[in-house]
Amino acid sequence: MQANADLNNNTPAPRKSKKRKKKVNWTLTSVMMVLAIFAILGPLYITVVIALKDPSQMTNVLSLPKQIHWENFKNAWQMTNFPKMFLNTLFITVVNVIFTIFTNSMAAYVITRYRLKNKFFNMMYYYFISAMFIPFNVIMLPLVKEVSAFHMDNIIGITFLYIVFGLPQNIFLYSGFVKEIPTALEEAAEMDGAKPMQIFFKVIFPLMKPMHATVAILSFMWTWNDFLMPLVLLSNPDQQTLQLAQYVFQGQFSTQYNLAFASYVLVLLPVLIMYVFFQKYIIAGVTSGSVK
């Protein structure tokens, strides 16, 4: 019970490191900066300049374009059926994030709370945690058979599968968080007359906000960038994602590198824009998802 006081405690955690004025190590700063620019940003620079050039400027690949060819984007946009693929991917991502947060947090909450009191929930906990050791590659052959039998080889079907397949990881993530929420809160709500669903949605769910953010970011990254699951599950050209479309159109681009790279930029851009704005939260979310 003692640790429970924390939630109501607003005294800021003592700063671990006192800010000490120290001399900046400029040599190290320069090394890290040069490395970042050449090694990390270099390939991205190449991607962008190629996307902006036409084949005649490709003799000097690394130079800045003399003339910017925006039409590469227009052509790539049409060629890869970008709007359709974008909407498909957006649908999968958004629906997956929303449903994942509601359903997975609910299951994780109940399992974490009752697994020490109840054998059934304890069994469920170990069931999901052990499923983390089964990679998708291991189940994909039979899964494809099953999915086509259920006629789920489409955008809605794959979205549904993302929600379900995220469970083991998300139960693990939420579980560590739920443990820290004092049970007295639920008991207080129970004494206040709240029913189980009300206890969860009015008291517990709002408290899980930091973990919702982490789960949302990880789910987003997973679905937006996933290639293997769409590759094996989605065959209808209308029902493809951005990543899959890049693979499918690879052959058609052949040596039209400018178009291909324009297309890559189109796919990378939404994520990059998001990263620019939410960089702090994304980094914090990914860190807290891996490190307790």
Partner: peptide
């Protein structure tokens, strides 16, 4: 409750 159990 002992630790008040206020809804934060």
């Amino acid at each position: 409750f002992q630790n008040y159990a206020l809804y934060p």
